[in-house]
């Protein structure tokens, strides 16, 4: 006699099935609309630029080629800009997190005279900015225009990040600090030996905020840097798009150059190179993100509840 198979699966009601179906549909839809643009970049970047334009690709590359990546990776300016992006992001993460931690810790200490005034001044800058021209004048008088410092010094302290960090520091039991003081530890020791080791989630979160911000920031170089060798990749990418726009406008205005007899143009186009550059520029962030995204979520929660 055969033993009856017993199924451990939970029997789903019709309602459950409908809800699951809707959830799966929404999940798939969200997945599609977020992933497809990146996929489109990918297939366009691997296609012959002109043929991709002519054939309207959707799912697969057409006339597959590595020419677009070759154009990006052999362009000295683009390679240099990638290195600048890496350098400024790494430097910004280290310096900004350190400065923010120092400031946030100081402002959480009740012993600091005038901390309310400091906080108010800092908060003021969150709501009121000078705009491009006063900023330009300030940087000029600081002699940081057209130098690498313009990426680092103005971004040393973000008030928003500082508030997040202060909220986290306030959660650390004061008794820990008091006991360290009883043992003779000074403020720097307390910060480096007790507070910071207990604050790795917020340090990682703010490091991520700063890193992503620095990697994506094209604006600073656009207005405060003239030297092409100091341009980060995001700015070069923006310039590629703008140059295509400018060329288009010039064509509409002047329409003075272009085609020749009996030719079928083939090869890279400004659009295909843009997509290849985009891919190259997002790869580092995509590699790092999975490892730090849990901190990102935590950081958002800290900001939502405490700040």
């Amino acid at each position: 006699m055969k033993a009856k198979k017993v199924s451990n699966a939970i029997r789903l009601t019709t309602e459950d099935k409908v809800v699951n179906g809707v959830a799966i549909f929404i999940g798939l839809f969200t997945f599609l609309v977020t992933v497809y643009p990146i996929y489109y970049c990918l297939i366009y970047a691997f296609s012959d630029g002109t043929m991709a334009m002519a054939k309207q690709i959707y799912l697969f590359p057409t006339s597959p080629t590595l020419d677009n990546f070759r154009a990006v990776l052999t362009d000295k300016l683009l390679v240099n800009s990638f290195l600048i992006s890496v350098a400024r992001t790494a430097t910004a993460v280290v310096t900004s997190v350190a400065f923010t931690a120092l400031t946030a810790y100081a402002l959480t200490r009740k012993e600091l005279v005038g901390r309310r005034i400091y906080s108010m001044i800092a908060m003021f800058t969150m709501y009121f900015g000078g705009g491009v021209i006063p900023t330009y004048l300030l940087y000029r008088s600081l002699h940081i225009l057209n130098t690498f410092s313009v990426y680092i010094l103005p971004g040393l302290l973000s008030v928003y990040n500082m508030l997040l960090m202060m909220a986290f520091f306030r959660d650390i039991p004061e008794s820990l600090v008091e006991s360290a003081q009883l043992d003779g530890a000074n403020e720097l020791k307390i910060l480096t030996r007790i507070i910071l080791p207990l604050s790795t989630p917020i340090l990682a979160t703010i490091g991520l905020f700063v890193g992503v911000g620095a990697w994506n920031d094209w604006y600073t170089a656009a207005y405060f840097i003239n030297d092409q060798d100091l341009m980060p990749m995001s700015t070069i990418l923006m310039k590629l798009v703008s140059a295509a726009d400018a060329a288009r406008k010039a064509r509409e205005m002047l329409a003075d150059a272009g085609g020749g007899a009996g030719m079928v143009k083939k090869g890279t186009t400004s659009v295909s190179i843009q997509y290849a550059t985009m891919l190259v520029s997002i790869i580092p962030v995509m590699c790092v993100y999975p490892f730090v995204q849990k901190y990102f979520v935590k950081g958002i929660m800290v900001g939502a509840i405490k700040a």
Partner: peptide, 14 residues
């Protein structure tokens, strides 16, 4: 970083 602001490349005034 601070010293780079004093460098030669800082010809901010074009």
């Amino acid at each position: 970083t601070a010293l780079s602001a004093c460098g030669q490349s800082g010809n901010n005034t074009p």
